[in-house]
Design a binder for these strands. Structure first.
Lengths: 292, 292
DNA sequence: TCTTTGTCATAGAGAGGATCAATAACAGAT
DNA sequence: ATCTGTTATTGATCCTCTCTATGACAAAGA
């Protein structure tokens, strides 16, 4: 049985006011329209829903039964619309970002500051996570933008724009004499190496650079954050590969020294990842356009 | 927010098939119509509900939230329609009658037999009850027809048709000599009187007859059913006022004797009562037309 | 790379149904 | 009897949905 659900809306109002004229008013219709709709409904269902009295209408037994169901159905639709309204407000004033820890300090922070200054009422949700988990979250729709190092090979992910992030190798002042001339990659391996824990894309990036030259990088320290790497490098434990932006102030103040290499260290490329075909929230759109 | 609920129906199918073309098929519409409806819904709610992919559509976060609500709402409407269908079948094959005990045997039974013979599949629900309670049940819609003694003064009740039911006074053979000549009402009061318990309309009817002649009827026996009254009269305990139809066979077999009275005992009038303006069920309609 | 296939979107025309204004019909109440 | 408040009916109108035809696009395959 297929019943025009708009008739149910009319029925609902009629049942609640027991008066077709009043129902028409609350529905912003005329009384004959209501009368017509009720008649259609009754004929479609094959049941008389109201007894017509001289001063209004009265639900029949069947009408009463129908009313209970229809009321809960429309209450459900009401709550659906309220829910949507809330979600809309929320998502419009909401920016969800995931990024690698390396990227946050090196690249994201200034943009984020600017965004927050311009749209202070937009709530920012920033999650630091590993690249693989960021992609997962994008795919399940629980974040809007993902900032990851390229390349990203996932079929369902799209990289919107990219940004080069220069890397450098730094040591503490204890190794000052290593800075006098450019180093071959081979000589570099003679230094103790400070690296992130295995599995991170940043570490793979560095290992890949060595491997492309037929050499094996062996980590002497395995630490969990860029901060720790910089800290240990400063104290003279060895050499660390870090985003130049991240260590720029330390290099300027000469607590860290940059090594020159014969083979240049390639830039890494930071990309903005989104789920393919997903429509961006307004906030995400705004943030995106502030980045470039 | 007022949203055309038919759009929700389209949305529901689209969400369930993740494919507007297939949704259109299951809705017996064309794909552009579905596309249009979804667009309307999205614009009205101000939210994008689907991401459009190259092979179908995918619910957005908001769409998923909406879907859950809309689904339960339409499930509710479904169950409403199933409920109505059942009620319809039921009420069409269902006759609900209430009647005074006195009327059942005296008047209703033969008609009921005929009705049952003609419509054996229609379920008959017969409740024996007091007049006041019958009127209550009519007013609350829990019975279709009420068979009661007239007059009925209730504002909300309508009496459709009436039928005269002759009454008589009977005694057992022990009082045979009382039958020789017509009795004045005064003499009648000298007999022990067998009556129904106080409060019944039948008893009021009899008391009213005495009172209209300035006499007081005093009950010697107060019993609860016509059968009991006949039984006690037969055994010679006194005189009972009973519907002539009810005691006809006993009079014929001379186990009960009818007294003649100078002032004739008026007929009682049985009426078919219905709630004013209520539409009768098919079965009730059929039964009604068999009565006259 | 080009074609094919499957998808959704758009445009414009058309039809059908909901809506309306006017009025009738009806029942209670005054 | 008349008045008031209700629902039902009618016929015209208008709007909205639906349709056909076509476009646009993306993915898969030749």
């Amino acid at each position: 049985m297929i019943v025009n659900t708009e008739w149910y809306r009319v029925f609902l109002h009629a049942a609640e006011s027991s008066n077709l004229t009043k129902a028409a008013q609350s529905l912003h219709m005329t009384q004959p329209s209501v009368s017509y709709a009720i008649k259609q409904l009754e004929e479609t269902l094959g049941v008389r829903l109201f007894d017509r009295l001289s001063k209004g209408v009265r639900l029949t037994q069947e009408g009463q039964a129908l009313y209970l169901h229809v009321r809960t159905a429309f209450e459900e639709l009401d709550s659906a619309e309220r829910r949507i309204k809330k979600l809309k407000q929320f998502s419009e004033g909401h920016l969800r970002i995931c990024a690698n820890g390396a990227i946050i300090k090196d690249f994201l922070l200034p943009s984020l500051d600017a965004f927050h200054a311009r749209y202070p009422s937009i709530r920012i949700q920033l999650s630091q996570d590993r690249t693989s988990r960021i992609l997962e979250r994008l795919k399940q729709g629980s974040t809007d933008l993902g900032f990851v190092h390229l390349p990203v090979l996932d079929e369902e992910i799209e990289v919107g724009a990219s940004h080069a992030s220069p890397y450098c190798v730094v040591v503490g002042t204890a190794f000052a004499d290593w800075t006098l001339q450019p180093l071959s990659t081979e000589r570099l391996t003679e230094l103790p190496l400070l690296m992130l824990s295995p599995g991170s894309t940043t570490r793979s990036f560095i290992e890949g650079w060595f491997q492309s030259q037929g050499l094996e990088a062996e980590a002497d320290f395995e630490l969990n954050s860029l901060d720790m790497l910089a800290e240990f490098a400063e104290r003279g434990y060895g050499a660390a590969f870090l985003p130049r932006g991240f260590v720029a102030s330390r290099i300027a103040s000469r607590t860290l020294l940059e090594l020159r290499t014969e083979v240049p260290i390639p830039d890494r490329h930071i990309g903005i990842a989104v789920r393919k075909h997903s429509s961006l929230s307004l906030a995400a759109e705004a943030f995106w356009s502030m980045l470039f």
